[in-house]
Design a protein around this nucleic acid. Structure first.
Lengths: 333, 333
DNA sequence: CTGTTAGCGCGTTCAA
DNA sequence: TTGAACGCGCTAACAG
């Protein structure tokens, strides 16, 4: 069944140039073993006919599509948007295309999406922070080559991640240095990998500072979640807040502002991620800058290495830099 | 050359089930003319072997990939991120995949990207606000089926767009009603389609209100551009600002704040787009809410109609709702 | 150096 | 109802 009519094929070029298919193929692929004059004639007719090899047919015979897939839990999340951007641009430099799959936070959908998109591509970059560790381990072999983003190190695939633990530790040290002795952590999704990393930082800090109390409050990952816990935060009596991310911090900032609480005089608030708007809140948000676009580029590098059979990248970790702005200050007393 | 080894093919299933390739193919495609018992046996072995038809091979023979491409000028722009999200989710509902291509603001790259990605997909959604009108008209036929986003109506493709002209007119009316008689418009990229639409609104307003002056100031489309024109804005003496978009408005807001100018008491500032953070600036931004995700969904609907041969969608227009917040107020005098 | 042939994996005619 | 044969468009062996 012939669709997309009008498209010129290699057969057309061969006929017009009076040569065989193979010769055209060789010329188009820069295969040197072709008479220069003939090659030139083929190139001319190809140009004249506006011929380009059908990528689908090439993919089928070559076994590679020059396309990779990226699975994200939520395209509305600024972090994943940045990862996608970094990934897309890096892949484009090497002539690869990117297929996006948004699981819309449906954890069980991620698996299907990953397997499905993998079959139409040469590899997958998997952002699945909430997927069960066992399910992930079981999934990875079926996806190879694959790169995992922001998860604990894996046996079966390189992991590209931000070091949430170190960065949060720095943030805690910053607040501790400002005299804060009672903090509260606004936890994100319990099952998520980066939330676990953050909790390790909390445990480290508690162990290191006997005089430091860190409460934990269940929270979501978006603006509304941050606003919703405002009363609980104020009731808890902490002088400093470690928000799960910037969105939560901004929601909290807004909500406590409505209640007449001054930041940072009455309460210090630290975010996480350094999304583009973190610097424009009032006051600007102290946060840890997760280099999402760079993570995307790292992911491509790790995948590209597998694709080309180069020395595999086992893992890449970037430590978010703590950015001190005006939402944190000396502890209220 | 056999790559991706280990993948079971239709031949494997046929052999295991003791039937021909055609029978397996018929069963997998729900072709009714197969003996129920045989069909069941085929299904069983297919399930046992974990067989799924190779999408590439299907694409080649069927002439369709179940994938569409979306070309955007900048994945860092919140509006295009939202369009992508709306498009991706809508397409996913109908079982389609989405290939993204970020031209990184390289206008001449857009053409290549569009043609290139089109060949690996069934259609294209083109977001190319800065492409020359003639170049666009020349490009569209080679892309069909294609949908254009946020451009003037086209002969050769449906256009999905926000009505920038009406929305800006509303914004102007709002400010005029507040007593503003001297406004300044911070223009975006001169060649862009939506900038032209905005300028039409300016012309309309000038014609309608003899007492209204609207200056124009060349500006960019991002935060820094807005901040950069702060002095020029203040020197101009306008009491109200129509920023090209929210990013520009936020940059300006921040910069004039640094200069001790109170918003809206000394100066009213209106944005455009209603990006997620427009409501969280200080003061919150009056703006026109461009429903980007809906535009993405509209684009899919228009493309899907062409793909399925349904009644074609000629065009879809959404008028952004003006959102009044605290960055605009009575004219200073 | 060139052309002929055989697939890549699948859907679909055409006979049987 | 089933299977054999053909072709989607291309690349890569294999001759010549």
């Amino acid at each position: 069944m012939a669709r997309t009519p009008g498209t010129t094929t290699i057969t057309d070029v061969a006929r017009h140039a009076g040569v065989s298919l193979s010769t055209v193929s060789r010329v188009m692929n820069g295969n040197a073993t072709v008479d220069p004059a003939l090659a030139e004639r083929v190139r001319a007719t190809a140009a004249e006919l506006g011929y380009t090899a059908n990528p689908l047919a090439r993919s089928l015979v070559l076994g590679r599509t020059q396309t990779i897939a990226v699975v994200v839990p939520d395209l509305a999340n600024p972090t994943f948007q940045e990862i996608l951007r970094g990934l897309s641009r890096a892949a484009a430099v090497d002539g690869y295309h990117v297929l996006v799959a948004d699981s819309a936070e449906q954890v069980d959908e991620e698996k299907v999406l990953a397997v499905d998109t993998r079959r139409r591509t040469d590899g997958v970059v998997l952002c699945a922070p909430r997927m069960d560790a066992d399910a992930l381990a079981a999934l990875l072999p079926t996806l190879s080559p694959v790169v995992v983003v922001n998860r604990a190190p894996q046996e079966l695939a390189p992991v590209v991640a931000a070091d949430y633990r170190s960065a949060l530790a720095e943030l805690i040290a910053h607040l501790h240095g400002l005299g804060h002795r009672h903090l509260v952590f606004l936890a994100g999704v319990a099952g998520s990998a980066s939330n676990a990393a953050r909790r390790e930082a909390l445990a480290d800090a508690r162990a290191a500072h006997a005089d430091l109390t860190i409460d934990e409050l269940a929270c979501g990952v978006d603006f509304d979640s941050g606003a919703a816990v405002a009363d609980a935060v104020l009731a808890g009596g902490a002088t400093g807040v470690l928000a799960f991310n910037d969105l939560v911090a901004m929601g909290l900032l807004s909500a406590v502002g409505d209640r007449g609480v001054r930041v940072p005089d009455d309460l210090s608030i630290a975010g996480f991620d350094d999304i583009p708007f973190a610097r424009y809140t009032t006051p600007p948000l102290t946060t840890a800058a997760v280099p999402a676009a760079e993570l995307g580029a790292d992911a491509w590098a790790a995948l590209h290495a597998q694709l080309t059979g180069a020395t595999p990248v086992a893992a890449a970790t970037r430590t978010p830099a703590v950015v001190l702005r005006a939402s944190t200050g000396p502890a209220a007393r």
